[in-house]
Design a protein around this nucleic acid. Structure first.
Length: 851
RNA sequence: GCCCGAGUGGCGGAAUGGUAGACGCAGCGGAUUCAAAAUCCGUCGCCGCAAGGCAUGCGAGUUCGAGUCUCGCCUCGGGCACCA
């Protein structure tokens, strides 16, 4: 008997699949199609366990669906633009393009041995001019369709490096490289009109029934539809042109609790007041720090009393002060609010800090109107008693009160009910080199002019340097120079490149025709779209998925996708992340420096670098390049083979849950595959026609395994499918059935294992006389007759505690079951003569006796 | 700060509101072996000699019955629009 040696069998079967073209996607009108897609990776250069888990899941689905008779499309590509390539160029020299393509080659070489059923002929990288040229063509179409525009927006500005920073590059309000305090600065940038689709993107969520509820909820909250009141305060003492101050509130029922009005530091009124040096200083103070919502909302709340007053709409004699406050966002509503400290914690904190009045508008139904120590914010659906109400009943829910307040405002003409969305337009300008150039030209006489399509792709120049901060395209000697497509006069190219989210918003469509001279090809898109199963990390729940949903609609509007593809992902599965501890030291300036797990030596008390420097251990978090807490799966594959790695990542945790990487367990997976191997050898040596015992039991176990594994894969419960496979393997190993039944069982085992461990499955299949390639064999079907049991064991509870059990025929009538249960000797003992109040029989499940 | 999740033995986890701990790992006992590794068999939540009791992050509640549903907390994780 030979030993299980994956290094011999894995390359052999990978060759066989390739020779057979087993994974080449073909449009086959005779078959239903199935498009399975995993979120494509960023080419960091090394695959990690998260990739192995992600792509194995997709591969299980792809192989399973192929066995179910579908024509499967399972492609792979590279999300290849982005900051790390430029950072590498800055840190280590070299060129982002060379670095990226080198990484792609390395990663592909690491992925190939996994034996994934990928159609590599469709491979693409978003940094290929072949890809981004088509993206530029679509940009022009969308520009023409009015989906793209320019406006000013704030960015993180590093005043020392004189460059724009990503949020990730702002650490504690300082630039990561320069250490300078970051400021918010306005820049004119390109935007997609995603907010035009707010309602559409929200209401269409209801149709995404095969998406996780939590993702739909997160997207709905992100879009943030709200119904509220918009009205204008009359101002007193404001500069000319600011006689009215428009505010928006979702709680107009709290109007009588207003104690101040507040405007964003970016509000036009604040800008108008900046002629006052004190206001200018305050606004400058507010602009310190980065642009991220997290930073803005966790910053200490500060305010400046402008001295301007506004008249309360319900009582002109009542005047409220107007403050500039750093926590009011210009992007949401009108950039101005009225503060009701009693019913909003932020307003409460602000009012407490600046000594503004706090008056309750409503109280809990049974409570008195007493001074508050914190904001009272019950759910809107809760009934409360209004002590300073002005519309609706005294006791009503928040929802009723809001509706009544809007009606009151409309009736008296001081405001209107309006619907607003939190979703903002999608800013795609990046002041960086390694991205898709925005194909427009700035002409001194014609202004902003779209490039001609025949001039596409606008390719990135190769001769750039990264020795200075800032965008190399800006300082390139000739690249910017061009002729205006309209008037032919000398003009300058746009140097902003596109957000990499644009690249990943349509790659799924491009996979249907990756080499086409147009972004998509109708007949290919018609056949392959939509993605039937999309698989990726929960961290993409909002941005990537929402942008893709928008982009598909924009592509439909510009003629690049059929109407059926406006929701491109029929089903979504969000896998958990593979997490790992983070190892950190600090540099001379006290900034964190992260270390790869292989650079770290664990000690009894903690961890050190190899030179003995103590390392700070930060608890497990998502594996990420920047935190360097990534584990290299290649060691596992080298030691145990791809099947072990695949089996292991699918077996341990439920796929939607995070999994903490540990090296223990890979051994166990390998041992199990070795057991399957020796079992296969043993059965192979059984004499033909040998009669054994327990044929029916083994046939039943086989049927049960088919049923359980099928359900497990269909329901994305791969860990449960694998648990059934362990049990089934043990059953076969202990069985002593006839040769034919044993062979049937192990062939079925091979087929059931094949989505997870395709190589060993193929080998077992061949040894046990399976026909053709296991990878191309049909999925087995369980005989329903073998799945039913005649008797069933029922636990008996007394007052909800399990005390006994009885075995009864499956279809026994309830009164019979009751009689049997009450006659059971344990039951009699526990009842000890107490009268039975009630007896509950759940057929096939449980009996509960209540005394 | 805001939005969304998760929390079950020593560990990963299983459980249409119906026997909590399937399956696997580790541990323990045994077989095999000169011995070990490997392999195989058995055992394995905690307390208790046992009867039995206690157990699904914490606290309430609904129910004949709650890991599962409701409310309030705690801890950890993801996202927060320029990380991908």
């Amino acid at each position: 008997m030979s030993r299980y040696d994956p290094s011999l069998i894995e390359p052999k079967w990978q060759d066989a699949w390739e020779r057979a073209g087993a994974f080449t996607a073909r449009r086959d009108p005779a078959k239903p199609k199935y498009y399975v897609l995993e979120m494509f990776p960023y080419p960091s250069g090394r695959i990690h366990m998260g990739h192995v888990r992600n792509y194995t899941m997709g591969d299980v689905v792809a192989r399973y669906k192929a066995a179910q008779g579908f024509s499967v499309l399972h492609p792979m590509g590279w999300d290849a633009f982005g900051m790390p390539a430029e950072n590498a160029a800055m840190e280590r020299g070299g060129h982002p393009k060379d670095w990226t393509y080198g990484n792609i080659a390395d990663m592909k070489a690491q992925m190939k041995p996994l034996g994934l059923s990928i159609d590599w002929s469709r491979e693409l990288a978003t940094c290929d001019p072949e890809y981004y040229g088509q993206q530029q063509a679509m940009f022009l179409d969308m520009l023409e369709a009015g989906l793209v525009y320019r406006k000013a927006a704030v960015v993180n500005w590093d005043p020392v490096d004189m460059t724009v920073l990503a949020n990730e590059q702002v650490i504690d309000g300082k630039g990561w490289r320069s250490g300078a305090a970051v400021e918010r600065r306005e820049l004119v940038q390109w935007f997609f009109r995603i907010s035009d689709y707010s309602e559409e993107l929200l209401s269409a969520l209801d149709g995404l029934t095969n998406w996780p509820e939590k993702v739909r909820l997160m997207q709905a909250n992100w879009i943030g539809k709200s119904r509220g009141l918009q009205f204008a305060f009359q101002t007193v003492g404001a500069p000319e042109g600011f006689e009215r101050l428009e505010v928006y509130t979702t709680r107009p029922d709290t109007l009588m609790g207003a104690s101040f009005a507040a405007i964003s530091p970016d509000h036009p009124l604040a800008k108008a007041l900046e002629t006052d040096p004190k206001v200018a200083a305050f606004v400058a103070e507010c602009r310190k720090g980065g642009t991220s919502a997290e930073e803005i909302e966790t910053a200490e709340k500060i305010g400046y009393d402008t001295g301007i007053r506004v008249k309360h709409p319900l009582d002109p004699a009542w005047e409220l002060p107007v403050w500039i406050a750093n926590f009011i966002l210009m992007d949401y509503g009108t950039g101005a609010i009225f503060g009701c400290p009693a019913h909003d914690q932020r307003d409460f904190d602000f009012a407490s800090k600046y000594g503004l009045p706090i008056k309750a508008v409503f109280v809990a139904e049974a409570a008195e109107d007493a001074p508050l120590t914190e904001a009272f914010v019950p759910m809107k659906s809760e009934r409360v008693r209004y002590v300073r109400g002005f519309a609706g009943e005294t006791v009503q829910t928040g929802e009723e009160a809001v509706a009544a307040a809007i009606a009151h405002a409309e009736r008296h003409g001081y405001g209107q009910g309006v619907t607003k969305y939190r979703l903002r337009d999608w800013g795609i300008s990046r002041q960086r080199y390694w991205g898709c150039p925005i194909p427009v030209v700035h002409c001194p006489s014609c202004g902003v002019v779209p490039e001609k399509k025949e001039n596409l792709p606008i390719e990135l120049p190769y001769d750039v340097s990264f020795d200075k901060p800032g965008n190399p395209l800006d300082r390139h000697p000739t690249w910017r120079d061009c002729a205006c497509p309209k008037c032919g006069q000398p003009a300058k190219r746009e140097t902003d490149t596109m957000d990499t989210f644009v690249d990943s918003s349509w790659y799924y469509a491009r996979f249907t025709a990756p080499r086409a001279k147009t972004p998509t090809v109708a007949e290919e898109a018609d056949y392959w779209m939509n993605v039937d199963q999309y698989i990726g990390g929960i961290e993409h729940a909002i941005l990537h998925l929402l942008y893709s949903r928008f982009f598909a609609r924009a592509m439909h509007r510009t003629g690049h996708l059929p109407a059926k593809a406006i929701e491109p992902f029929n089903a979504l599965f969000t896998q958990g992340m593979v997490t790992h501890e983070i190892y950190m030291t600090r540099d001379a300036a006290g900034r964190p420096v992260y270390h790869l797990p292989e650079e770290v030596v664990r000690t009894e008390t903690g961890a050190t670098l190899k030179d003995g420097t103590p390392v700070e251990i930060i608890p497990s978090a998502k594996m990420s390049k920047s935190k360097k807490n990534v584990v290299d799966p290649m060691n596992i594959i080298a030691r145990f083979g791809a099947d072990t790695a695949r089996w292991f990542v699918m077996s341990d945790s439920p796929p939607e849950r995070d999994v903490e990487w540990t090296s223990a367990g890979a051994e166990a997976a390998f041992k199990h595959l070795s057991r399957v191997w020796s079992l296969c050898s043993r059965i192979g040596e059984m004499p033909e026609g040998h009669k054994g015992e327990g044929d029916e039991e083994l046939a039943r176990a086989t049927a049960r395994a088919i049923d359980e594994v099928t359900k497990g894969i269909e329901g994305f419960a791969f860990n449960k499918a694998i648990a059934s496979l362990y049990a089934f393997t043990n059953t076969i190993a202990r069985a002593n059935a006839s040769t034919a039944v044993m062979k049937e069982a192990i062939r079925t085992l091979a087929k059931l294992m094949s989505p997870m461990t395709p190589h060993i499955a193929e080998e077992v299949w061949a040894m046990q006389g399976g026909e053709g390639l296991c990878a191309q064999a049909p999925w087995p079907k369980a005989d329903p007759a073998l799945l039913v049991d005649d008797t069933v064991t029922l636990p008996i509870q007394i007052n909800g505690k399990r005390r006994a059990e009885i075995s009864v025929p499956k279809d026994m009538a309830i009164p019979e079951v009751e009689k049997l249960a009450l006659a059971d000797e344990d039951v009699v003992r526990f009842l000890a003569g107490q009268p039975v109040k009630k007896i509950i029989v759940v057929p096939g499940r449980i009996i509960n006796v209540v005394v």
